[in-house]
Measured scan of single mutants.
Amino acid sequence: HNLTITQGKLFFHYNPKLCLSEIHKMEEVSGTKGRQERNDIALKTNGDQASCENELLKFSYIRTSFDKILLRWEPYWPPDFRDLLGFMLFYKEAPYQNVTEFDGQDACGSNSWTVVDIDPPLRSNDPKSQNHPGWLMRGLKPWTQYAIFVKTLVTFSDERRTYGAKSDIIYVQTDATNPSVPLDPISVSNSSSQIILKWKPPSDPNGNITHYLVFWERQAEDSELFELDYCLKGLKLPSRTWSPPFESEDSQKHNQSEYEDSAGECCSCPKTDSQILKELEESSFRKTFEDYLHNVVFVPRKTSSGTGAEDPRPSRKRRSLGDVGNVTVAVPTVAAFPNTSSTSVPTSPEEHRPFEKVVNKESLVISGLRHFTGYRIELQACNQDTPEERCSVAAYVSARTMPEAKADDIVGPVTHEIFENNVVHLMWQEPKEPNGLIVLYEVSYRRYGDEELHLCVSRKHFALERGCRLRGLSPGNYSVRIRATSLAGNGSWTEPTYFYVTDYLDVPSNIA
């Protein structure tokens, strides 16, 4: 807008934040220059609390790290170098490059900038070799853009010569660093050979998330399962459950009422301010606690030095998902009996873990797994792929695949051998790939016309006998059925096997 004052003059007093240069501009645009008398524009009460600059400061050096910015700028000295009290560095987070010096300023003089007072450097006698002032900004957020400017702080001049310097606002972004852990990993099994893994992005990506790394490792069953005799009275049979499938998407929606109208769909109840505040506090606490764990609990591995020492970490090797089922080394339970199943799973520490690289999504279907087997899954978020990966501390989750139908069934015939004193040795093959492992066998036998009897055969007993022995049988026709019990439950009964026990007292003698 054009402003013209045809008559009258300007009068400025007691404006401590208004620089004289701005008042002189007002004289020019209003056409009143030359009308004012000496005392109409006070030299001592206008701009006496402001830094009124008329020179431009330029930054000469900028260096960044993930949490620091090192700045240096060209030296500046007023005509009387004693008038320079120091520099004021202003900075704040700036997602967009549209910041002005006066953003967030209120009537009390406060604003949204963080201000650092910096002492002037030592003055050199040689004007050509003056030290460049600077400042190291610490405690910054990774991968965050900051708006920065600097200006001088000078003393009051009796001659009211307006001098000083100020830089333009520059924008500097800190470097990326390792992201925080992925949030809320959930693993479920939808079949006997697959596990579905879902997660949420890290709360602090500290860069642009480029991919996720998912490692999985087959877990050995508890050692007590191999040692305890679950045929003993009072000892509860062990059981394991597989990871249940995901709930429906509708039930997972946030901010939804727990109660549904019987007449149909209901609208979600909005969260109160107290609920939102509580969630923010919980989120802040979780982030602080995660940072504490990362800094205190997890110790970084030592990389190899120039002395030739090897990095103890196993090298990563990509495998196809079809090879995942046989990740671990199978060892027989008892070496003397080769027909026992290889369900003991000690994992070799030198073995390469299978892994998958996930790009542009937060889910993965891990296939080719062994049925009813526990897996430990390790999830890392990465925001750099080359020249070397920059990934987060791992988040861990466990899951067990679903049982395989008929995996616990005894394959092959049940054979028998009759000894003296009416002892019958029953023999059968253990299931080759049971659900988890076989903890015991149930032997059901009966003599024709009598009630059915049951015998429990422990895992250890089966390994020693290759089956079991029935003792003290009365003469007669017998039928026997056997079924295995694994961590997933009972298998199917075998087809009945028949044998006849004679009275050993009636056996004919070869003595003449």
Rank of each mutant, 00 (worst) to 15 (best):
T401I: 05
T343L: 13
E465V: 12
A463D: 13
E442K: 07
P403G: 09
R481D: 00
R466P: 06
H371G: 14
R370A: 13
R400S: 11
R319K: 11
P496C: 07
E351R: 05
R240A: 00
S444L: 05
I276V: 09
I418E: 09
K317I: 13
E281M: 05
L235G: 06
P300Y: 03
D291T: 04
V345H: 06
V365E: 10
E290K: 12
H461K: 09
E417G: 12
Y441P: 00
H211M: 15
D385N: 03
E495V: 07
G472E: 04
R459T: 04
E420P: 14
D273G: 05
L237N: 15
P244E: 13
D273S: 07
S392Q: 01
D311N: 13
N255P: 12
V439L: 09
I366G: 00
V327D: 12
K236V: 07
S284V: 07
Y230W: 15
P496S: 08
N206A: 14
E495A: 10
Y478T: 01
D506I: 06
E281S: 13
E442L: 09
S492G: 14
P475T: 09
R481N: 08
E265V: 05
V501M: 13
C382R: 00
A399H: 09
D409I: 12
E495S: 07
G325L: 13
F337I: 09
D506R: 07
F337V: 07
I410L: 09
D408T: 03
E281T: 06
I276R: 06
Y448H: 11
T343D: 07
A407R: 11
D204W: 11
S262V: 03
V358A: 03
V457N: 09
G472F: 11
V324W: 05
I482V: 06
G322A: 13
S239F: 02
S304A: 08
S203F: 12
I366R: 02
F499W: 03
T497Q: 10
P270T: 15
L232A: 09
K278A: 15
T340G: 03
G476W: 00
L369R: 02
C266H: 01
G207R: 01
D385P: 08
Y498I: 15
S458I: 03
I418Q: 04
P338W: 13
G264H: 12
Y448R: 15
W428V: 00
R318N: 06
V334R: 07
I377L: 13
Q275N: 13
A220N: 12
G322V: 09
S458K: 13
L225C: 11
F462I: 04
Y498M: 14
T497W: 07
C269Q: 05
E388W: 09
D311K: 12
A336R: 15
S268C: 02
E290M: 06
R313V: 12
S458C: 12
I438A: 05
V345S: 11
P431S: 03
W216K: 06
R471Y: 15
P332R: 12
L228W: 10
D506N: 15
V297Y: 09
L369Y: 00
V443D: 01
R483H: 09
A463C: 08
I418A: 08
P238L: 09
G368H: 04
V359N: 08
P270K: 10
N383D: 03
S203T: 15
S223A: 07
K460G: 09
G476D: 00
L321G: 06
G472C: 08
D323T: 14
P312V: 04
E378K: 09
D261L: 08
K271V: 03
Y498P: 02
C266N: 14
E249H: 09
C391Y: 15
L213V: 15
E465T: 10
V345L: 10
S320I: 12
T502I: 05
I276Q: 14
D291E: 10
H416Y: 09
K460I: 07
E465K: 05
P346T: 15
E217F: 05
L470M: 08
P332N: 08
T494S: 07
R316L: 05
R469E: 12
R466D: 09
K361H: 06
T333L: 07
P349T: 15
S304C: 04
L470S: 00
R353G: 14
V334G: 11
L379H: 01
D222M: 06
M402Q: 14
S444T: 14
G207T: 01
I482C: 03
F337Y: 09
E260T: 14
V397I: 01
L464G: 09
K287N: 04
D408A: 02
S251G: 05
Y478P: 01
H211L: 10
E282L: 14
G436S: 09
T485N: 03
K317G: 06
D323I: 13
S474T: 12
Y500M: 06
P354H: 12
L237V: 14
R316A: 10
E389D: 08
V297N: 07
L364E: 15
F289H: 14
R316I: 07
T272Y: 07
G368R: 10
R481H: 13
E388D: 03
L470G: 01
F226W: 03
S398M: 05
Y498H: 04
V299W: 02
D229T: 14
K361W: 12
Y396G: 12
A381M: 01
P332E: 14
E260G: 04
R240T: 09
D385L: 10
N208A: 09
